[in-house]
Design a protein around this nucleic acid. Sequence first.
DNA 1: CGTAACTTTAGAACTATTCTAATCTGCTTG
DNA 2: CAAGCAGATTAGAATAGTTCTAAAGTTACG
Lengths: 141, 141
Amino acid sequence: MANRKISPRASPRTSERLRAAGLRPTRQRRLLADLLFQHGHRHVTAELLHQEAKEAGCPVSLATVYNALHQFTDAGLLQQVIVEASQSHFDTNVGPHQHFYEEEAGRLTDISADIGVSGLPQPPKGTKIQRVDVVVRIRRD
Amino acid sequence: MANRKISPRASPRTSERLRAAGLRPTRQRRLLADLLFQHGHRHVTAELLHQEAKEAGCPVSLATVYNALHQFTDAGLLQQVIVEASQSHFDTNVGPHQHFYEEEAGRLTDISADIGVSGLPQPPKGTKIQRVDVVVRIRRD
DNA sequence: CGTAACTTTAGAACTATTCTAATCTGCTTG
DNA sequence: CAAGCAGATTAGAATAGTTCTAAAGTTACG
């Protein structure tokens, strides 16, 4: 009879998704997963997601948000995007793609077009290329 | 008779360089500029430069290192390179070029080849492209 | 249901960076 | 060259984002 505060409209598929990723579908993780994956791809910051959870009427501690973001990332459900030194951004689009970044607004946008990078030299001896990130920095004009 | 602790082997040109950039050639700035610009292009972190100043026998406060890095950057003598969320990196190569980044070691290397990026879409309405950064993440194998 | 393993949480701790206010220095002027 | 001021340096406090800790709560499985 306890635990009346069910996470609002948790999609029934969310639990399955979490389980498939090897994560227990706890109330908090279901909420966060719903916020992240329910409406197409998006970019979040820990602070933003924390705020959204609170606004959804199901507050989650900031530590849990950080935990979840990292677990989701390790599970391949999220990707970390590094565009500014002061904050980490996470992207629900985990396929290979690139980003626009608007510094002033801190706004990150997926580039849907296929970016080609040519002229890459051999990586230094003893290393291999793991990923190529392209960030197109834009400014309001 | 005071101020016997002259910065070691400050190149005579360094003062001119600083003055040209609109910065007073103080003892600290001369030292830092020498460490940065005397031996070809390099990449530093505030912590690293601070350490090097100490080892050069001319300790400089960390705040001064940060101040100098930003002033040099504003003056166009340095460029900030964003490759990891936890620390800022600065590059003495301010021309257009791209980077290899080895995560484990935190090592940044210039790519000397000319990288071409094709397939860039129009930037979002009301914005214009300011810079395109390519980071080739590599791993020891 | 019991219980072992896993989660969440508040708050402390930590790290990189910036700020503050006091002191000092480089440069110009008399 | 002494005085004085704008600008620079500094130690240490403050801040922001993130991670850690250890105690309390949940989940899943028999």
